[in-house]
Every structure is written in C-alpha cells, then in structure tokens.
C-alpha cells in the first residue's frame, strides 16, 4: 500500500471530523478557562503592581514545565482524563494572557485617565470604560498567541489518551491508522491554527475599529 492512501482518508472522514471537533473543543475549553482564571489575576496585578512579579513567577514556572511532564505529573492523580489535559493546557495559557492583559491595561496614557476622572468616571468606570477598551488589541493579541499555542499543545495530549488531531498523528505512527493519518493530522492542525488566528484578528478589528494595525514581529 502506498503512502498516499486517499481511499482511507475518504472512507474515514467521520473519524477525521470527530478528531477535529475534539481538538477544537479541547482548545476552546482551555482558552476559555484560561481567560476566566487570568482575568482577575491581571486586574489584581494591574491594580496592585507589587503582586505582578509573584504572578509572573508562578505562571512563568508553569509555562517552563514541558507539557508531557506536566501531564505526567497529573496522571497519577487525575488519570488519563480530559481534566488532566485541561489543567495542563489552561496552565500554559496563563502567562501569555496575563502578561498581555497587564501590558495592555498599563498602556493607557495618564492624561486620558485624568480626563476620564475629570468627566466624573469612578475608578471602576475608568477601568471598564477607558482602560479595558483601549487594552483590547493587546489582550486579543494575547488570546491569539494563547490559542495558536494551545492548538499545538493539544496534540501532545494524545499520549494521555485524548489529543484530537494528535491522536491521528500518534495513531499513524503506531500503525493504528495508515501513515497518511500523520499528514492529515498535521495539515488540519496547521489549518486550524491559521483559521483561529484569522478569526481572532478579525474579531479584534471589529471590536476596536479605532485601533491601528499592530506590529507583526516581536522578540520572543
């Protein structure tokens, strides 16, 4: 059987679709919960600057731990489950989301805030009606990076029995599926990452029509 086993691909579109759906679902859960966890922490770091180093230290440590190691540390306690996958995936989104949110919130010029206060905005009003809208492009940029990163990391959860498209890759390698499943998995994973990035970029432009285009290359 040649490598280009299109017949298998054609007859297994439902399996491929199911894995793609699982991939998307695992990603959405991770970024969604990541936002829920990171948002209050970002507000805290923004309000009380002294908490920021501690927050970045902890989330930076989580970010540095290799994903397979993080999943493996959890497996003895939470098993080969979606919970294990999500604890790990959410952990990785935190540093990116918090860092961008804090940078964005801190970017409002002081005189703009001063003007808002003079117009009668409370501190809470300044945060929600002035700082947050102005920070949106940077926050969404963080969500984009977190989403694309998560789409890549979801594949690793194949090793703990999940994985979405990663399960196609691992299955193709272990001869559970023909080898072309590896290529299908990688191609769809890249496509998903690019599509998610585009959708979020579009959403950001729609949300902040006043913002200019952001820089495309930054140092890592």
């Amino acid at each position: 059987m040649s490598f280009w086993n299109w017949e298998w691909v054609g007859t297994h579109l439902d399996l491929i679709g199911e894995k793609l759906g699982e991939h998307l679902w695992l990603t959405l859960l991770a970024v969604g919960f990541g936002l829920v966890v990171s948002f209050p922490l970002a507000i805290l770091a923004h309000r009380r600057a002294r908490t920021y180093p501690a927050i970045t230290w902890v989330t930076g440590l989580l970010y540095t731990i290799p994903s397979l190691a993080l999943f493996a540390l959890l497996v003895p306690f939470t098993g080969l489950s979606t919970l294990t996958a999500e604890i790990g995936l959410v952990s990785y989104t935190l540093l990116i989301l918090i860092r961008n949110a804090v940078t964005g919130l801190g970017g409002t010029p002081e005189d703009v805030k001063e003007a808002a206060r003079a117009m009668g905005y409370s501190e809470r009003g300044v945060l929600w009606r002035v700082e947050l809208p102005l920070a949106l492009p940077v926050i969404v940029a963080g969500i984009r990076i977190a989403t694309v990163t998560t789409i890549g990391l979801v594949t690793v959860t194949a090793l703990i029995g999940k994985g979405g498209l990663g399960a196609l890759m691992l299955g193709g390698f272990r001869r559970l599926y023909p080898q072309i499943a590896i290529l299908v998995g990688v191609a769809l994973s890249v496509a998903l990452a690019v599509a998610a990035d585009r959708v979020l970029l579009w959403a950001q432009r729609a949300l902040t029509p006043w913002a200019r285009r952001t820089r495309s290359v930054t140092a890592t």
Binding site: F3, I145, V148, T149, I151, G152, L153, T155, V156, A158, L165, G166, M169, L170, G172, F173, Q179, I182, L183, G185, V186, S189, V190, A193, V194, D197, S216, V217
Partner: peptide, 23 residues
C-alpha cells in the same frame, strides 16, 4: 521571510513534526 518562519513555527505542532520527520 522572518515573519513567515515565525508564524509557521508557531502553527506547526512539534508533536506532529517529529512523526513527519520519521516518515
């Protein structure tokens, strides 16, 4: 080229890259 490499590097899952390399 730098932008393309940076974006591509982010989009390709390293987990899949290893299996592609084996292929």
């Amino acid at each position: 080229l730098v932008v393309s490499v940076a974006n591509l590097g982010r989009a390709i899952p390293s987990f899949g890259l290893i299996f592609l390399a084996v292929l």
